[in-house]
């Protein structure tokens, strides 16, 4: 995607459509929040030093988990959300900024961050909901 806020909204809605069947409405909501906050944060704050900033994204499914990997533009400074996120309980209720990283930490099941090749990579994992027996059999035909 291009490094613009307009592309963030377009991409988030597309990704949401891709994962919603696997994740169900509650987890899809958390996925949408996390991806929106993560991409917005990169576009607004991760200024590439070397090249035009292109952000690459992969979504994979394994072991009843959906993982999204977000690769920052080449040349951006590392910014690990795990080190900078504020607890949403401690943020001034009248603060106009500063909730994004806390939302990522609260809404993703697993947050990982580090170098992958020459790019910083944020990986967020979301566990698929456990279906009750009735739902598991609802699609079967007699």
């Amino acid at each position: 995607m291009r490094n613009t806020l307009e592309d963030v909204d377009l991409l988030v809605t597309s990704l949401k459509d891709v994962v919603c069947v696997a994740l169900g409405p509650e987890v899809t909501f958390r996925f949408e929040i996390c991806v929106s906050e993560a991409l917005t944060n990169i576009v607004k704050h991760a200024k590439p030093k070397v090249t035009e900033g292109r952000i690459d994204i992969t979504v994979t499914e394994f072991d009843r988990t959906v993982m999204i990997e977000i690769f920052e533009p080449v040349g951006t400074d590392a910014f690990d959300p795990r080190d900078h996120a504020a607890d949403l309980d401690t943020i001034d209720p009248l603060a106009e900024e500063g909730r994004g990283l806390g939302l990522i930490m609260q809404c993703a099941d697993v947050v990982d961050y580090g170098l992958s090749g020459d790019r910083n990579r944020l990986a967020l994992q979301f566990a698929m909901p456990i279906k009750c027996p009735d739902e598991m059999h609802s699609g079967e035909q007699k």
Partner: peptide, 10 residues
């Protein structure tokens, strides 16, 4: 998102 919430707080 948090930016929308921030605008509302503003």
């Amino acid at each position: 998102d948090s930016s929308g919430l921030g605008a509302l707080v503003g």
